[in-house]
Amino acid sequence: MSRIPIGLDVNGVGREVLVDPSRTLLDVLRWDLGLTGTKENCLEAECGVCTVLVDGRAVNSCIVLAASVAGRPIVTIEGLARDDRLHPLQQAFIKHGAVQCGYCIPGMILAAKALLDRTPSPTVDAIKDALAGNLCRCTGYHKIVQAVQAVARGEFDGEGGLS
C-alpha cells in the first residue's frame, strides 16, 4: 500500500508523517516520532499500556489507525510535564509509591487524567472503572487508587519540580 502524508497534533505540536494507512497510532508514536513513553505489549487492547488521550479521551493506541486521528489533539505521557513542572498525577504516583516496574504507568496516568479532566472528584468506584482497562502486575493497584484520590483532593496542585 502506498504511504500517505498525515498531520498529527501530538502534545500541542504539529507533526507531519508519511505513513502506510494500515499503521497504528502506537506504532507511529513510538517508531516515527520516537515517543517511546507510550508502551507496547498485547497489541489487542487488553493490557492498556499503550493508552494515550485523543480529544481528551483515553484510547488504546494499538488499535487506532494513525490516519484516523489526523488533526485531532493527542496527548502522550511526554506531554504532561510542562515548564519543568510535573503534572499532579505524576507527582502523586511518585509520592504514593504507585510506581514499581513502571511499564503500565504512562497508560495508567493518562487514563486517570482523562477521568479527572471530566470528573474532578470521582468516587473510588469511578476511579476503578476508569482504570479497569489498564493492567498492572506489580502494585496490586491500591497505591494507584490512593494517588488518584490524592490528586482529586487537590493535594498536588502546587509546585512539582522536575529535579
Binding site: 517511546t36 513513553g37 505521557i77 510535573l86 522536575l162
Partner: peptide
C-alpha cells in the same frame, strides 16, 4: 519511605525498557 530514584523517569515516559 523515600522516593525511589527511578520514579521520575518512569512517570515522565523517559525510562527506556528492552521493548523500546
Amino acid at each position: 519511605s523515600v522516593p525511589r530514584s527511578d520514579a521520575l523517569p518512569k512517570v515522565t515516559g523517559q525510562a527506556i525498557y528492552g521493548a523500546d
